[in-house]
């Protein structure tokens, strides 16, 4: 009895699998091709700038052409020059092909050492006390591509950037303010400064004497 039951079970499963295969192919066509391609068409027509990566030119203006772009307004670049605002630490060195965080645990001794090291470095570079270095300046972001810094981290970088560019602190602080966003709808997320947009605005303003 057992072999016949097993054989008939197998036959039943095969029959259902064939129906399943036809179903799957139909779903692949509708949800795997028609749906994403239709959405792509909508995006390219209705939101071409966003759908192509929120690219910006060197003058800070939007573009959909990759060859005209110097980056994406949504993706951090690893600014190191003293005349620029610096982004947060990145576990992937701001490589867009290696997004992600450090994933180090909250008690990890290596992480504690990295944080202490970064804090000392930022304090020295910005000429502030270690206690005044904000948390986002010394921690790797989740994506490794975090385009923003906190207003507090921007604030301690103002003096250095102003000095390097021969500008007044007030002028640079005003520019920071213009590139600071509050919480969405007043309550969602956190206030933030877009580093790439701010740095492009600094270059464009061409406020050098």
């Amino acid at each position: 009895m057992a072999p016949t039951t097993a054989a008939s079970d197998l036959a039943t499963l095969t029959r259902h699998s064939l129906a399943g295969l036809r179903m799957l192919l139909a779903f692949t066509f509708v949800t795997g091709l028609a749906y994403p391609l239709a959405m792509t068409a909508v995006g390219q027509v209705a939101f071409p700038w966003q759908a192509n990566g929120s690219l910006v030119r060197s003058d800070g203006g939007p573009t959909t052409s990759r060859s005209d772009a110097v980056g994406s307004a949504l993706v951090a670049q690893g600014f190191t020059g003293a005349e620029y605002f610096h982004p947060r630490p990145s576990a992937g060195e701001h490589d867009t092909l290696a997004s992600g965080g450090s994933n180090l645990g909250p008690l990890n001794p290596g992480l504690v050492a990295s944080i202490e090291g970064r804090k000392a470095a930022v304090a020295a570079a910005e000429g502030v006390a270690a206690a005044d270095v904000p948390p986002d300046a010394v921690t790797a972001s989740a994506s490794g591509l975090d385009p923003h810094i906190s207003p507090a981290y921007a604030a301690i970088q103002v003096a250095r950037v102003a000095r390097e560019r021969g500008l007044s602190d007030t002028d640079v602080a005003d520019l920071v303010a213009r590139h600071t966003a509050g919480r969405d709808l007043g309550v969602l997320g956190e206030p933030r400064v877009n580093v790439l947009e701010l740095n492009l605005a600094l270059d464009v303003a061409d406020l050098r004497p």
């Binding site: 947060r88 965080g101 450090s102 994933n103 180090l104 909250p106 992480l111 504690v112 944080i115 202490e116 804090k119 270095v133 904000p134 948390p135 986002d136 010394v138 921690t139 790797a140 972001s141 989740a142 994506s143 975090d146 923003h148 810094i149 906190s150 997320g189 956190e190 933030r192």
Partner: peptide, 13 residues
């Protein structure tokens, strides 16, 4: 050490 649990967090969130 950092002053807040911002390791592995995004600024906007």
């Amino acid at each position: 050490a950092a002053g807040a649990a911002m390791e592995g967090k995004e600024t906007r969130f």
